[in-house]
Design a protein around this nucleic acid. Structure first.
Lengths: 203, 203
DNA sequence: CCGTAAGCACACAGGGCGGTGTACATAACA
DNA sequence: TGTTATGTACACCGCCCTGTGTGCTTACGG
Protein backbone atom coordinates (compact mmCIF):
# COMPACT_ATOMS: atom_id res chain seq x y z
CA UNK A 1 0.00 0.00 0.00
CA UNK A 2 2.26 2.73 1.19
CA UNK A 3 5.63 1.60 0.01
CA UNK A 4 6.58 -1.28 -2.17
CA UNK A 5 9.94 -2.91 -2.39
CA UNK A 6 11.66 -2.99 -5.68
CA UNK A 7 10.41 -5.85 -7.76
CA UNK A 8 12.57 -8.68 -8.95
CA UNK A 9 13.63 -6.82 -12.07
CA UNK A 10 14.30 -3.49 -10.43
CA UNK A 11 11.19 -1.68 -11.52
CA UNK A 12 8.37 -0.85 -9.26
CA UNK A 13 5.60 -3.30 -9.96
CA UNK A 14 1.87 -3.22 -9.69
CA UNK A 15 0.68 -4.86 -6.51
CA UNK A 16 3.21 -6.79 -4.49
CA UNK A 17 2.24 -10.35 -5.18
CA UNK A 18 5.81 -11.46 -4.61
CA UNK A 19 5.76 -10.22 -1.06
CA UNK A 20 2.57 -12.05 -0.31
CA UNK A 21 3.97 -15.25 -1.74
CA UNK A 22 7.10 -15.05 0.37
CA UNK A 23 5.12 -14.11 3.41
CA UNK A 24 2.87 -17.10 2.99
CA UNK A 25 5.92 -19.27 2.42
CA UNK A 26 7.36 -18.23 5.75
CA UNK A 27 4.23 -19.27 7.52
CA UNK A 28 3.36 -22.46 5.67
CA UNK A 29 6.84 -23.87 5.24
CA UNK A 30 7.39 -23.44 8.95
CA UNK A 31 4.08 -24.83 10.06
CA UNK A 32 3.83 -27.73 7.66
CA UNK A 33 7.27 -28.19 6.23
CA UNK A 34 8.36 -27.65 2.68
CA UNK A 35 7.45 -30.95 1.12
CA UNK A 36 4.03 -31.03 2.67
CA UNK A 37 3.10 -27.60 1.37
CA UNK A 38 1.83 -27.64 -2.18
CA UNK A 39 1.92 -24.73 -4.53
CA UNK A 40 -1.85 -24.73 -4.74
CA UNK A 41 -2.23 -24.29 -1.03
CA UNK A 42 0.52 -21.72 -0.89
CA UNK A 43 -1.00 -19.62 -3.64
CA UNK A 44 -4.37 -19.78 -1.98
CA UNK A 45 -2.90 -18.59 1.31
CA UNK A 46 -1.05 -15.79 -0.45
CA UNK A 47 -4.19 -14.80 -2.36
CA UNK A 48 -2.22 -15.05 -5.53
CA UNK A 49 -3.00 -16.94 -8.65
CA UNK A 50 -0.75 -19.85 -9.40
CA UNK A 51 0.13 -18.33 -12.72
CA UNK A 52 1.48 -15.24 -11.02
CA UNK A 53 3.56 -17.29 -8.65
CA UNK A 54 5.26 -19.05 -11.51
CA UNK A 55 5.95 -15.73 -13.16
CA UNK A 56 7.84 -14.58 -10.09
CA UNK A 57 9.67 -17.84 -9.40
CA UNK A 58 10.78 -20.28 -12.02
CA UNK A 59 9.80 -23.15 -9.77
CA UNK A 60 9.28 -24.26 -6.23
CA UNK A 61 12.99 -24.78 -5.75
CA UNK A 62 13.73 -21.15 -6.40
CA UNK A 63 10.94 -20.11 -4.10
CA UNK A 64 12.32 -22.27 -1.32
CA UNK A 65 15.77 -20.79 -1.73
CA UNK A 66 14.37 -17.29 -1.65
CA UNK A 67 12.30 -18.16 1.38
CA UNK A 68 15.43 -19.15 3.27
CA UNK A 69 17.15 -15.90 2.38
CA UNK A 70 14.43 -14.03 4.21
CA UNK A 71 15.56 -15.09 7.63
CA UNK A 72 18.77 -13.13 7.83
CA UNK A 73 17.48 -9.96 9.40
CA UNK A 74 15.15 -11.71 11.78
CA UNK A 75 17.24 -13.32 14.47
CA UNK A 76 20.96 -13.12 14.38
CA UNK A 77 22.10 -9.65 13.45
CA UNK A 78 19.70 -8.40 16.05
CA UNK A 79 21.87 -10.09 18.61
CA UNK A 80 25.34 -9.39 17.33
CA UNK A 81 24.76 -5.72 16.79
CA UNK A 82 23.56 -4.96 20.25
CA UNK A 83 25.93 -2.44 21.70
CA UNK A 84 24.36 -2.49 25.13
CA UNK A 85 25.91 -5.86 25.86
CA UNK A 86 29.45 -6.94 26.41
CA UNK A 87 30.81 -9.40 23.85
CA UNK A 88 30.43 -12.17 26.34
CA UNK A 89 26.82 -11.26 26.96
CA UNK A 90 26.22 -11.11 23.24
CA UNK A 91 27.48 -14.65 22.86
CA UNK A 92 25.04 -15.79 25.49
CA UNK A 93 22.22 -13.70 24.11
CA UNK A 94 22.35 -15.79 20.95
CA UNK A 95 20.73 -18.55 22.98
CA UNK A 96 17.86 -16.37 24.11
CA UNK A 97 15.51 -17.16 21.32
CA UNK A 98 11.91 -16.10 21.55
CA UNK A 99 9.56 -19.01 22.23
CA UNK A 100 7.72 -18.23 19.02
CA UNK A 101 10.53 -19.67 16.97
CA UNK A 102 9.77 -23.31 16.40
CA UNK A 103 12.91 -24.53 14.68
CA UNK A 104 15.86 -23.43 12.69
CA UNK A 105 14.50 -23.49 9.14
CA UNK A 106 17.92 -24.09 7.66
CA UNK A 107 18.27 -27.47 9.30
CA UNK A 108 14.72 -28.32 8.33
CA UNK A 109 15.32 -27.38 4.72
CA UNK A 110 18.56 -29.32 4.49
CA UNK A 111 16.86 -32.42 5.85
CA UNK A 112 13.67 -32.08 3.86
CA UNK A 113 15.25 -31.31 0.53
CA UNK A 114 17.86 -33.97 1.09
CA UNK A 115 19.98 -32.77 -1.79
CA UNK A 116 23.22 -30.94 -0.98
CA UNK A 117 23.20 -29.48 -4.47
CA UNK A 118 19.86 -27.80 -4.01
CA UNK A 119 20.31 -24.02 -3.93
CA UNK A 120 18.49 -23.84 -0.64
CA UNK A 121 20.81 -26.44 0.85
CA UNK A 122 23.81 -24.51 -0.36
CA UNK A 123 22.46 -21.35 1.16
CA UNK A 124 21.81 -23.15 4.42
CA UNK A 125 25.45 -24.16 4.49
CA UNK A 126 26.59 -20.63 3.79
CA UNK A 127 24.34 -19.28 6.47
CA UNK A 128 25.55 -21.71 9.09
CA UNK A 129 29.12 -20.84 8.26
CA UNK A 130 28.31 -17.15 8.50
CA UNK A 131 26.80 -17.63 11.94
CA UNK A 132 29.87 -19.48 13.13
CA UNK A 133 32.02 -16.69 11.77
CA UNK A 134 30.05 -14.03 13.56
CA UNK A 135 30.22 -16.02 16.75
CA UNK A 136 33.96 -16.36 16.28
CA UNK A 137 34.29 -12.63 15.72
CA UNK A 138 32.42 -11.91 18.89
CA UNK A 139 34.49 -14.51 20.70
CA UNK A 140 37.62 -12.78 19.53
CA UNK A 141 36.21 -9.52 20.74
CA UNK A 142 35.55 -11.13 24.08
CA UNK A 143 39.16 -12.18 24.31
CA UNK A 144 38.83 -15.89 23.72
CA UNK A 145 42.05 -17.79 23.31
CA UNK A 146 40.86 -19.64 20.23
CA UNK A 147 37.94 -17.66 18.82
CA UNK A 148 37.39 -19.89 15.80
CA UNK A 149 37.08 -22.94 17.97
CA UNK A 150 34.73 -21.24 20.39
CA UNK A 151 32.62 -19.93 17.57
CA UNK A 152 32.33 -23.37 16.07
CA UNK A 153 31.45 -24.84 19.43
CA UNK A 154 28.74 -22.31 20.12
CA UNK A 155 27.30 -22.86 16.66
CA UNK A 156 27.19 -26.55 17.36
CA UNK A 157 25.33 -25.87 20.58
CA UNK A 158 22.78 -23.75 18.78
CA UNK A 159 22.16 -26.46 16.22
CA UNK A 160 21.97 -29.10 18.90
CA UNK A 161 19.38 -27.12 20.79
CA UNK A 162 17.39 -26.57 17.63
CA UNK A 163 17.42 -30.24 16.65
CA UNK A 164 16.64 -31.43 20.14
CA UNK A 165 13.84 -28.94 20.52
CA UNK A 166 12.34 -30.28 17.33
CA UNK A 167 12.57 -33.93 18.19
CA UNK A 168 11.63 -33.75 21.85
CA UNK A 169 9.16 -30.90 21.51
CA UNK A 170 10.69 -29.14 24.49
CA UNK A 171 12.86 -26.08 24.71
CA UNK A 172 16.50 -27.17 24.78
CA UNK A 173 18.04 -23.72 24.45
CA UNK A 174 18.44 -23.05 28.16
CA UNK A 175 20.52 -26.19 28.50
CA UNK A 176 22.59 -25.12 25.54
CA UNK A 177 23.08 -21.70 27.08
CA UNK A 178 24.36 -23.34 30.25
CA UNK A 179 26.93 -25.26 28.25
CA UNK A 180 27.85 -22.10 26.37
CA UNK A 181 28.55 -20.30 29.61
CA UNK A 182 30.95 -23.02 30.65
CA UNK A 183 32.72 -23.03 27.32
CA UNK A 184 33.02 -19.28 27.21
CA UNK A 185 34.48 -19.10 30.66
CA UNK A 186 36.88 -21.88 29.83
CA UNK A 187 37.97 -20.24 26.61
CA UNK A 188 38.58 -16.77 27.91
CA UNK A 189 41.89 -16.58 29.76
CA UNK A 190 40.86 -15.61 33.23
CA UNK A 191 42.19 -12.14 33.63
CA UNK A 192 39.95 -11.97 36.65
CA UNK A 193 37.29 -14.18 38.13
CA UNK A 194 34.59 -11.54 37.78
CA UNK A 195 35.80 -10.23 34.46
CA UNK A 196 32.65 -8.91 32.92
CA UNK A 197 33.53 -5.32 32.24
CA UNK A 198 33.88 -3.79 28.85
CA UNK A 199 36.97 -4.92 27.08
CA UNK A 200 38.33 -2.45 24.64
CA UNK A 201 39.57 -4.25 21.59
CA UNK A 202 40.27 -2.01 18.63
CA UNK A 203 38.43 -3.42 15.70
CA UNK B 1 18.44 -67.59 4.36
CA UNK B 2 18.63 -70.74 6.40
CA UNK B 3 17.21 -69.33 9.57
CA UNK B 4 14.39 -66.89 9.77
CA UNK B 5 13.39 -64.71 12.61
CA UNK B 6 9.99 -65.15 14.04
CA UNK B 7 7.44 -63.27 12.04
CA UNK B 8 5.34 -60.46 13.44
CA UNK B 9 2.66 -62.79 14.62
CA UNK B 10 4.95 -65.40 16.10
CA UNK B 11 4.52 -67.95 13.37
CA UNK B 12 7.26 -68.87 11.01
CA UNK B 13 6.65 -67.38 7.63
CA UNK B 14 7.40 -68.64 4.21
CA UNK B 15 10.35 -66.77 2.85
CA UNK B 16 11.20 -63.69 4.84
CA UNK B 17 9.75 -60.92 2.79
CA UNK B 18 9.36 -58.78 5.85
CA UNK B 19 13.06 -58.84 6.55
CA UNK B 20 13.89 -57.84 3.04
CA UNK B 21 11.45 -54.96 3.20
CA UNK B 22 12.91 -53.64 6.41
CA UNK B 23 16.42 -54.12 5.13
CA UNK B 24 15.65 -52.15 2.00
CA UNK B 25 14.00 -49.49 4.14
CA UNK B 26 17.16 -49.03 6.15
CA UNK B 27 19.14 -48.40 3.03
CA UNK B 28 16.71 -46.31 1.02
CA UNK B 29 15.29 -44.18 3.81
CA UNK B 30 18.82 -43.28 4.79
CA UNK B 31 20.11 -42.61 1.34
CA UNK B 32 17.12 -40.76 -0.05
CA UNK B 33 15.02 -39.83 2.91
CA UNK B 34 11.60 -41.09 3.79
CA UNK B 35 9.41 -38.84 1.71
CA UNK B 36 11.50 -39.25 -1.39
CA UNK B 37 11.34 -43.02 -1.27
CA UNK B 38 8.19 -44.44 -2.80
CA UNK B 39 6.72 -47.78 -2.01
CA UNK B 40 7.21 -48.91 -5.59
CA UNK B 41 10.91 -48.25 -5.45
CA UNK B 42 11.21 -49.78 -2.01
CA UNK B 43 9.44 -52.95 -3.04
CA UNK B 44 11.60 -53.23 -6.12
CA UNK B 45 14.75 -52.90 -4.03
CA UNK B 46 13.46 -55.48 -1.57
CA UNK B 47 12.47 -57.81 -4.39
CA UNK B 48 9.03 -57.99 -2.92
CA UNK B 49 5.72 -57.44 -4.57
CA UNK B 50 3.83 -54.40 -3.46
CA UNK B 51 0.93 -56.56 -2.49
CA UNK B 52 3.08 -58.49 -0.06
CA UNK B 53 4.45 -55.32 1.46
CA UNK B 54 0.96 -54.10 2.25
CA UNK B 55 0.12 -57.41 3.80
CA UNK B 56 2.99 -57.03 6.24
CA UNK B 57 2.48 -53.36 7.01
CA UNK B 58 -0.83 -51.62 7.05
CA UNK B 59 0.73 -48.59 5.45
CA UNK B 60 3.89 -46.64 4.93
CA UNK B 61 3.55 -44.99 8.31
CA UNK B 62 3.72 -48.27 10.10
CA UNK B 63 6.68 -49.30 8.00
CA UNK B 64 8.51 -46.11 8.88
CA UNK B 65 7.88 -46.61 12.56
CA UNK B 66 9.13 -50.17 12.37
CA UNK B 67 12.16 -49.03 10.42
CA UNK B 68 13.12 -46.66 13.21
CA UNK B 69 12.85 -49.40 15.78
CA UNK B 70 15.56 -51.31 13.96
CA UNK B 71 18.34 -48.96 14.99
CA UNK B 72 18.50 -49.78 18.67
CA UNK B 73 21.10 -52.47 18.59
CA UNK B 74 23.25 -50.78 16.01
CA UNK B 75 25.02 -47.89 17.66
CA UNK B 76 24.40 -47.06 21.23
CA UNK B 77 24.29 -50.18 23.35
CA UNK B 78 27.49 -51.18 21.66
CA UNK B 79 29.09 -48.23 23.37
CA UNK B 80 27.47 -48.33 26.77
CA UNK B 81 28.08 -52.00 27.33
CA UNK B 82 31.77 -51.92 26.69
CA UNK B 83 33.44 -53.11 29.86
CA UNK B 84 36.94 -52.40 28.68
CA UNK B 85 36.42 -48.68 29.14
CA UNK B 86 36.02 -46.55 32.19
CA UNK B 87 32.68 -44.78 32.49
CA UNK B 88 34.34 -41.56 31.45
CA UNK B 89 35.81 -43.19 28.38
CA UNK B 90 32.45 -44.67 27.54
CA UNK B 91 30.87 -41.24 27.59
CA UNK B 92 33.47 -40.03 25.15
CA UNK B 93 33.24 -43.13 23.02
CA UNK B 94 29.65 -42.20 22.24
CA UNK B 95 31.10 -39.48 20.01
CA UNK B 96 33.27 -41.91 18.07
CA UNK B 97 30.81 -42.67 15.36
CA UNK B 98 31.94 -44.57 12.32
CA UNK B 99 32.22 -42.38 9.26
CA UNK B 100 29.74 -44.60 7.47
CA UNK B 101 26.89 -43.19 9.53
CA UNK B 102 25.42 -40.30 7.61
CA UNK B 103 22.96 -38.87 10.06
CA UNK B 104 20.85 -39.69 13.05
CA UNK B 105 17.71 -41.16 11.47
CA UNK B 106 15.54 -40.10 14.37
CA UNK B 107 16.11 -36.42 13.75
CA UNK B 108 15.62 -36.96 10.05
CA UNK B 109 12.35 -38.76 10.61
CA UNK B 110 11.04 -36.16 13.02
CA UNK B 111 11.78 -33.40 10.54
CA UNK B 112 10.56 -35.23 7.47
CA UNK B 113 7.34 -36.52 8.92
CA UNK B 114 6.69 -33.18 10.58
CA UNK B 115 3.92 -34.57 12.71
CA UNK B 116 4.60 -35.07 16.42
CA UNK B 117 1.69 -37.48 16.57
CA UNK B 118 3.14 -39.81 14.00
CA UNK B 119 4.16 -43.08 15.63
CA UNK B 120 7.65 -42.74 14.26
CA UNK B 121 7.97 -39.26 15.74
CA UNK B 122 6.81 -40.56 19.09
CA UNK B 123 9.32 -43.34 18.95
CA UNK B 124 12.06 -40.87 18.05
CA UNK B 125 11.21 -38.93 21.17
CA UNK B 126 11.31 -42.04 23.30
CA UNK B 127 14.61 -43.05 21.83
CA UNK B 128 16.22 -39.68 22.43
CA UNK B 129 15.05 -39.76 26.01
CA UNK B 130 16.44 -43.23 26.42
CA UNK B 131 19.81 -42.16 25.12
CA UNK B 132 19.90 -39.25 27.54
CA UNK B 133 19.01 -41.63 30.33
CA UNK B 134 21.78 -44.02 29.46
CA UNK B 135 24.22 -41.17 29.26
CA UNK B 136 23.04 -39.98 32.65
CA UNK B 137 23.47 -43.48 34.08
CA UNK B 138 27.00 -43.64 32.80
CA UNK B 139 27.65 -40.15 34.08
CA UNK B 140 26.48 -41.23 37.48
CA UNK B 141 28.76 -44.21 37.28
CA UNK B 142 31.60 -41.87 36.44
CA UNK B 143 30.87 -39.86 39.55
CA UNK B 144 29.36 -36.76 38.03
CA UNK B 145 27.90 -34.27 40.44
CA UNK B 146 24.68 -33.85 38.46
CA UNK B 147 24.38 -36.92 36.21
CA UNK B 148 21.01 -35.97 34.73
CA UNK B 149 22.29 -32.62 33.66
CA UNK B 150 25.46 -34.05 32.19
CA UNK B 151 23.50 -36.70 30.34
CA UNK B 152 21.19 -34.12 28.88
CA UNK B 153 24.12 -31.98 27.88
CA UNK B 154 25.95 -34.80 26.17
CA UNK B 155 22.78 -35.79 24.35
CA UNK B 156 22.46 -32.23 23.14
CA UNK B 157 26.00 -32.35 21.87
CA UNK B 158 25.32 -35.53 19.97
CA UNK B 159 22.26 -34.06 18.32
CA UNK B 160 24.11 -30.88 17.53
CA UNK B 161 26.90 -32.79 15.87
CA UNK B 162 24.40 -34.83 13.89
CA UNK B 163 22.48 -31.79 12.69
CA UNK B 164 25.59 -29.83 11.87
CA UNK B 165 27.11 -32.75 10.04
CA UNK B 166 24.00 -32.94 7.93
CA UNK B 167 23.76 -29.30 7.08
CA UNK B 168 27.44 -28.54 6.55
CA UNK B 169 28.33 -31.91 5.08
CA UNK B 170 31.36 -32.16 7.32
CA UNK B 171 32.04 -34.28 10.37
CA UNK B 172 31.17 -32.27 13.45
CA UNK B 173 31.53 -35.08 15.97
CA UNK B 174 35.17 -34.42 16.88
CA UNK B 175 34.26 -30.88 17.87
CA UNK B 176 31.38 -32.23 19.93
CA UNK B 177 33.71 -34.70 21.59
CA UNK B 178 36.01 -31.87 22.56
CA UNK B 179 33.16 -30.05 24.22
CA UNK B 180 32.09 -33.25 25.91
CA UNK B 181 35.52 -33.68 27.41
CA UNK B 182 35.33 -30.23 28.91
CA UNK B 183 31.85 -30.78 30.30
CA UNK B 184 32.73 -34.15 31.75
CA UNK B 185 35.79 -32.86 33.51
CA UNK B 186 33.84 -29.91 34.82
CA UNK B 187 31.07 -32.13 36.13
CA UNK B 188 33.13 -34.76 37.87
CA UNK B 189 34.48 -33.62 41.21
CA UNK B 190 38.16 -34.47 41.48
CA UNK B 191 37.44 -36.85 44.31
CA UNK B 192 36.43 -39.60 41.93
CA UNK B 193 39.30 -42.02 41.68
CA UNK B 194 40.12 -41.86 38.02
CA UNK B 195 42.91 -40.57 35.93
CA UNK B 196 41.31 -37.22 35.37
CA UNK B 197 43.97 -34.81 34.37
CA UNK B 198 44.14 -31.50 32.65
CA UNK B 199 43.28 -32.17 29.09
CA UNK B 200 44.44 -30.52 25.93
CA UNK B 201 41.40 -29.80 23.87
CA UNK B 202 42.23 -30.99 20.37
CA UNK B 203 41.77 -28.52 17.61
C1' DC C 1 -0.12 -86.09 -0.95
C1' DC C 2 -2.91 -82.31 -0.67
C1' DG C 3 -4.40 -78.01 1.70
C1' DT C 4 -3.32 -73.77 3.24
C1' DA C 5 -0.90 -69.81 3.63
C1' DA C 6 2.75 -66.91 1.86
C1' DG C 7 4.19 -64.58 -1.93
C1' DC C 8 3.88 -62.83 -6.82
C1' DA C 9 2.41 -60.18 -11.27
C1' DC C 10 -0.22 -56.79 -12.98
C1' DA C 11 -3.36 -53.51 -13.56
C1' DC C 12 -5.78 -49.79 -11.72
C1' DA C 13 -8.12 -46.36 -8.71
C1' DG C 14 -7.91 -41.84 -6.56
C1' DG C 15 -5.49 -37.95 -5.41
C1' DG C 16 -1.92 -34.54 -4.92
C1' DC C 17 1.87 -32.75 -6.97
C1' DG C 18 4.62 -29.27 -9.94
C1' DG C 19 3.92 -26.74 -13.84
C1' DT C 20 1.50 -24.61 -18.11
C1' DG C 21 -1.85 -22.48 -21.71
C1' DT C 22 -5.24 -19.37 -22.61
C1' DA C 23 -8.01 -15.59 -22.30
C1' DC C 24 -9.21 -11.72 -19.54
C1' DA C 25 -8.80 -7.73 -16.05
C1' DT C 26 -6.41 -3.99 -13.96
C1' DA C 27 -2.89 -0.75 -12.45
C1' DA C 28 0.89 2.32 -13.75
C1' DC C 29 2.87 5.41 -16.65
C1' DA C 30 3.58 7.89 -21.11
C1' DT D 1 -5.77 8.30 -23.99
C1' DG D 2 -3.60 3.89 -24.97
C1' DT D 3 0.23 0.64 -24.15
C1' DT D 4 2.44 -2.47 -21.34
C1' DA D 5 3.58 -4.79 -17.43
C1' DT D 6 1.30 -7.15 -13.80
C1' DG D 7 -2.07 -10.04 -11.85
C1' DT D 8 -6.29 -13.14 -12.30
C1' DA D 9 -9.37 -17.22 -13.20
C1' DC D 10 -9.65 -21.74 -14.47
C1' DA D 11 -8.91 -25.65 -16.81
C1' DC D 12 -5.56 -28.81 -17.95
C1' DC D 13 -1.34 -32.01 -18.42
C1' DG D 14 1.64 -35.69 -17.02
C1' DC D 15 3.79 -37.64 -13.22
C1' DC D 16 4.28 -40.05 -9.06
C1' DC D 17 2.27 -41.26 -4.85
C1' DT D 18 -0.17 -44.53 -1.53
C1' DG D 19 -3.03 -48.18 -1.56
C1' DT D 20 -6.23 -52.34 -3.73
C1' DG D 21 -8.49 -56.11 -6.39
C1' DT D 22 -7.87 -60.16 -8.70
C1' DG D 23 -6.07 -64.21 -10.02
C1' DC D 24 -2.01 -67.17 -10.10
C1' DT D 25 2.25 -69.76 -8.23
C1' DT D 26 5.02 -71.60 -4.87
C1' DA D 27 6.55 -73.60 -0.50
C1' DC D 28 5.80 -75.64 3.79
C1' DG D 29 3.64 -78.81 7.06
C1' DG D 30 0.54 -82.29 8.48
Amino acid sequence: MTELEKGPKGRRRGRGARERILSASQQLFREQGINRTGMDQLCAAAEVSKRTAYQHFTGKDELVAEYLRRFDPSVLPGVFDRTDLTPRERLLAAFDIPPTTPLCPYIAAAVELHDPQHPASQYARDYKKAVATRLADTAREAGAADPEQLGEQLALLLDGAAARTRVLNTDAFPAAAAIAAVLIDNAIPATAGDERRREEVPS
